[in-house]
Amino acid sequence: MPQMTESGNAGELPPFAESVLDLTERIPPGRVMTYGDVAEFIGQGGPRQVGRVMALYGGAVPWWRVIRADGRPLPDHEDRALANYRVEGTPLRDVGGEPRVDLKRARWDGK
């Protein structure tokens, strides 16, 4: 699938990015995977590499379903992420007055 590359040119996605985005699209509504979960499931890269793919190419997939390991919404995207979590019924918990995804209940194992 053609996508905009980092330089702004249309081109093919790198295979790792394609794998990350394909998996992200398969995460069911109301469920999440951490950046590390995605890397482990794909069998390559790590949380930072997955985060980079999401930052560059994740706008067209349900990006809010790939989260940090502490369950906090992505900085500067909290309101949009929380709105999506509420619509999808993603389990949330309150930590010091801050909403976080309840990973024990929301984490998806890819099956």
Rank of each mutant, 00 (worst) to 15 (best):
E12K: 13
D76L: 12
G58Q: 06
V66W: 06
T34W: 06
L23V: 11
A106M: 07
P75E: 02
A60R: 14
D70C: 00
G45F: 09
P2W: 04
P75I: 08
G97C: 07
G46P: 01
R68V: 00
A60T: 10
A10K: 08
A60Y: 02
G30N: 09
V95E: 15
G96I: 13
G97I: 06
P47S: 12
R93W: 14
M1T: 04
A10W: 14
V32Q: 02
A17R: 02
Y35D: 04
L74P: 00
D76A: 14
V32I: 15
K104Y: 10
P15L: 05
R48Y: 12
P14S: 12
T5I: 01
A83I: 03
G8D: 09
G43F: 09
F41N: 09
P91D: 07
Q44T: 09
R31A: 11
R72C: 08
W108G: 11
S19F: 00
P28T: 13
Q44L: 01
G11P: 04
D79I: 04
D102H: 12
G71H: 05
V101A: 12
R100G: 02
P14R: 05
P29K: 11
L82Y: 05
Q44R: 13
W64T: 06
M33T: 05
V50H: 03
R100Y: 11
L74E: 09
G8A: 06
V95Q: 15
Y57T: 00
S7K: 12
P2R: 11
A60W: 02
A55N: 13
P99Q: 05
G11E: 07
G96Q: 12
F41Q: 13
I42P: 10
P2A: 02
A69D: 13
P75V: 11
R48F: 14
R72F: 09
V101N: 05
A69S: 13
M54G: 05
W64E: 05
D109F: 14
T5G: 14
G96E: 07
W108I: 11
R105T: 10
